[in-house]
Design a binder for these strands. Structure first.
Lengths: 114, 114
DNA sequence: ACCTGACATCGACGCTTGTCAATACGATGC
DNA sequence: GCATCGTATTGACAAGCGTCGATGTCAGGT
């Protein structure tokens, strides 16, 4: 659960998705399908250094430190975030490959000319 | 719950996401975060006519008709699918705007050159 | 050695979700 | 009118999820 294949380039339209593909991508989307995790990812992605310390992330929410830690773990476990411990602090960084993998799902889908 | 604003063009990276934005997009992703619904959407999107009859969709799964109907309702309620009754049959079609809205979330995020 | 601060883990709690069997609804055909 | 077929809805159940308080762990500072 820590090194997923990252669901590369699934079409959605074009040809139909296989059951295995769907079961591979769904956990990624499930990890993204929470407002708190979306904001966490966004906060980290929009940071100038591309990473963020947990201490800073905690302050951005009205939630317990345990809850934030849990959400970060979820994002990390599906491969969306990298985790690095530096001294006392822990820094999370977005894995661009993971995001582009998800993007691939919808990009090819938008070529249906209505 | 039947006419959502469809979460247009949220950035993810760039500038951080607002709480309201996150709470608007999350339901869309939550609707997509299920293997059955992913395949349903894919089957409909990859159809030549761009739509699919429920009767055909039922046959593609080892699930009860009630369950498929439920999943289609979820996808419809968040604005991902259009519903049209023709005679005895019901046809579902993908709403391209909804997919592009979701795509917008990740497209801007992929400009990090790794 | 001790305390303190940063983060993770555990156990528990309510709420939501996916699934089914059963039933209801509406259109078609006899 | 009645039986039938396609689809939606209901009610129930187990499983999963988000949240919290409490506790554990590990690194620095005194």
């Amino acid at each position: 659960m820590s090194d997923p294949g990252l669901a590369c380039c699934t079409p959605l339209s074009g040809t139909a998705m296989s059951t295995e593909q769907a079961e591979q991508v769904a956990p990624l989307l499930k990890a993204l399908a929470d407002p708190v995790r979306l904001r966490l990812l966004s906060l980290i992605a929009s940071s100038t250094t591309g990473e963020a310390c947990v201490c800073d992330l905690n302050d951005a929410f009205d939630l317990t430190q345990a809850t934030i830690s849990h959400h970060l773990k979820v994002l990390h476990s599906v491969g969306l975030l990298d985790r690095e411990k530096r001294g006392v602090w822990v820094y999370y960084a977005v894995r661009p490959e993971a995001l582009t993998a998800v993007a691939g799902l919808f990009q090819t889908a938008s070529l249906t000319p209505a």
